[in-house]
């Protein structure tokens, strides 16, 4: 009896591992920046190039940093959700315009709506490297102390907003 059960058992263990493997997304590389201070930046604004914005301006509030570009197709998918989230007033969204051209970026915002409190320009992707960006769009939730609490790689979905991002933001806003 045992000599039949052992291979069966071994097969089941292997199958269980493979089954778990099927549900994992190899594109979702866990960011080492979670629970670490958000990298500092000081960048020019998109709408008013002579003004800049620093990551430290947002200390004391929970905010979202959304990395986007007009050349990024998936950004168009998530954009209506961001516009909606901005309208709800739950959390301010800041846009990091990643390796884009100012004029096309501005046109893009005019066409699809502008959910961003401020958009800043990362023309050569340097700040992107600091944030570990490799697949635009990416979205970071940053808490009152300036610590990254969540990173979403790829477009934000209704599911990820309702199940993860919004509950997390509400929780972070409770903290002093």
């Amino acid at each position: 009896m045992m000599r039949y059960l052992i291979p069966l058992f071994a097969f089941m263990v292997l199958a269980a591992f493979l089954l778990v493997g099927l549900t994992l997304n190899p594109r979702q590389v866990p960011s080492p920046l979670i629970n670490k201070p958000a990298p500092k930046f000081q960048l020019d604004q998109l709408h008013e190039p002579d003004k800049n914005m620093s990551s430290e301006d947002n200390l004391g509030k929970v905010w979202i940093l959304n990395v986007w570009a007009s050349w990024c197709v998936a950004c168009r998918d998530e954009h209506p959700l961001l516009v909606q989230l901005a309208k709800s007033g739950i959390v301010p969204i800041y846009g990091l315009n990643y390796k884009d051209e100012r004029s096309t970026a501005l046109q893009w915002l005019k066409r699809y709506g502008d959910p961003y409190a401020i958009s800043i320009v990362d023309i050569d992707g340097k700040v992107g490297i600091d944030y570990g960006v490799y697949g635009v769009p990416e979205t970071y939730v940053i808490d009152k102390k300036g610590i990254i609490r969540h990173k979403q790689i790829g477009p934000v979905t209704v599911d990820s907003l309702e199940k993860t991002i919004i509950p997390l933001i509400k929780e972070l806003q409770q903290q002093v």
């Binding site: 590389v29 080492p32 920046l33 600091d130 570990g132």
Partner: peptide, 8 residues
């Protein structure tokens, strides 16, 4: 690079 992108 590891600090930003992880061991991956």
């Amino acid at each position: 690079l590891v600090d930003r992108y992880g061991d991956f």
